[in-house]
Design a protein around this nucleic acid. Structure first.
Lengths: 100, 100
DNA sequence: AAAAGTACTTTGTTGTTCAAAGTTAAATAT
DNA sequence: ATATTTAACTTTGAACAACAAAGTACTTTT
């Protein structure tokens, strides 16, 4: 019996990064504060998880202004999307195995 | 939009524990050395992850002899099985969200 | 001028993961 | 009889990850 978690991605092992990526793949962009509220995180903690995903080039950052307020938006990159897709496939396979 | 990872279980956040649990739920029991080979782990590392699952009462241990050699077998408990089921459901929901 | 908002960074503590080495006890080989 | 091996750990120590809280820089609102 083979346990196929080959495509399992360390960057998504953490629950919070899994959630962030899930949001960013489902919504073409999401800003810092909305993410912070949605996931109920301190800003420092959110920033560091975002940075980890940025380091992997799984997300991109866009700094703009809404009215006169700074607004930082995050987007899943193509690289991030496909890495995430593979990761979910790995999880899906694991789930499927359980159902046989 | 709600991100439903409510049933996400910290005990299964780690890749190795996820694999162990996956094996133990699919096979009614598995012994230490087979698990060690299957997952390619040092014995110390495997032992500590097994201990973590034992502490949660997600697995049970049975010490027997095969011939004259000691043989330690691990089994998923009912508690472990249902916790794992809920965890996989949480992941499944996450995956489903992506596909909408 | 003071307070508040945005988006961080820094600091320091705590937690997690791991390999490697050590342990115990029995079994087998020399 | 002694040495080596196997099984199944435990202990140690180091590296890394996660987190809250506090600090920062800059701007805007009051």
């Amino acid at each position: 019996m083979k346990i196929s978690l080959d495509q399992f991605d360390k960057a998504f092992e953490n629950r919070i990064r899994l959630q962030i990526m899930s949001v960013l793949v489902a919504n073409e962009s999401y800003d810092f504060n909305s993410l912070k509220e949605l996931l109920n995180l301190t800003d420092g903690n959110l920033a560091s998880h975002l940075k980890a995903l940025e380091k992997e080039e799984y997300i991109q950052v866009e700094k703009t202004f809404i009215g006169r307020k700074p607004n930082t938006r995050y987007l899943a990159s193509e690289k991030g999307r496909s890495a995430f897709r593979l990761h979910l496939l790995a999880l899906e396979n694991l789930i499927k195995q359980q159902k046989l």
